[in-house]
Design a protein around this nucleic acid. Sequence first.
DNA 1: TTAATGACCTATC
DNA 2: CGATAGGCCATTA
Length: 110
Amino acid sequence: MEVADIKSGSVFDMVYEIVKQIPAGKVATYGQIARMLNNPRLSRVVGYALHVNPNPFLIPCHRVVNRFGEVSKAFAFGGENRQRHLLKDEGVEFDNLGRVILSRYLWKNS
DNA sequence: TTAATGACCTATC
DNA sequence: CGATAGGCCATTA
């Protein structure tokens, strides 16, 4: 199913649908998701959508990081430490700066 | 309808 | 590298 076909009415829902499709062991960036929505400027909205994340159990928000692979500071799911643990548990590695190696684990949707 | 908000991004110092 | 500022835009109160 194409991302472009996802039109649940609100951008938030679209974001959720996309995030749900991120496979384990991969991560996506806010800007990337925004681009998937055909609106590169929605990067902030994407973050906000996850901020008010209604279903932390259905939405793997821990697989969404910023442009540099850094985990969110205000992670409303148990702290950034929690997010790193979850990713690490999926096989995602971090560099010495504590950032996800995007060059290897960035999710590529087509 | 208006104003405020923010898990971003880019530029500048 | 860290701090600051502005812009961007959907959502909410």
